[in-house]
């Protein structure tokens, strides 16, 4: 946890929770990916999904910070500052009207992607755009750095 990602100067755990960027926390995201890949969000309504995400965040936050935040308090403060970009959790499907940039940042679960492929809805899969299959017309750079010996070559000649 870098200083940037715990911006609150007060020791108030609620404030720190509200501003904590879960999207930037690798450990949290890894744990979340595990939960998501088990299909925990499948078939849930948007509200239910949000609730599950909030619970996972509170659980994680309490574990790493030693705080004992209560779910209701967390929900209250989160709702009060809703849509703050700092703590919008990436993996939850955002409303469809979001600009494409946000669409590309969604991480779908393995099961979700499998389902979309099976339904032929690959257009809905993020990071699946057409990249032009062309070469650069620019002249490649010239090499200016001399080749180095590998550690084992250096030893052999020493």
């Amino acid at each position: 946890m870098d200083a940037q990602n715990s911006p609150s100067t007060s020791g108030d755990p609620l404030g720190r929770f509200a501003s904590y960027r879960f999207a930037d926390d690798a450990e949290y995201q890894q744990g979340l990916a595990g939960i998501l890949s088990s299909g925990a969000l499948q078939g849930k309504s948007e509200d239910e999904q949000e609730e599950l995400m909030l619970r996972s965040e509170v659980f994680y936050f309490n574990r790493v910070s030693g705080a004992s935040l209560d779910l209701d308090a967390a929900r209250a403060i989160r709702n009060g500052r809703k849509l703050g970009i700092d703590f919008a959790p990436a993996p939850v499907a955002p409303p469809p009207q979001l600009p494409p940039k946000d669409k590309e940042q969604i991480t779908l679960t393995f099961a979700q992607i499998k389902e979309l492929i099976e339904q032929g809805k690959t257009d809905n899969i993020p990071n699946n755009k057409v990249i032009p299959n062309v070469l650069s017309s620019e002249t490649p750079s010239e090499s200016r750095t001399s080749v180095r010996k590998k550690p084992w070559e250096a030893e052999a000649t020493a």
Binding site: F110, I117, N128, I131, V147, R148
Partner: peptide, 21 residues
């Protein structure tokens, strides 16, 4: 990088390598 100690390259895939860029 074999030339620069502070440089590396990452090969990556979207969507578990199933589909996409």
């Amino acid at each position: 990088s074999p030339f620069h100690n502070n440089r590396l390259a990452l090969a990556s895939s979207a969507n578990y390598g199933l589909v996409g860029n």
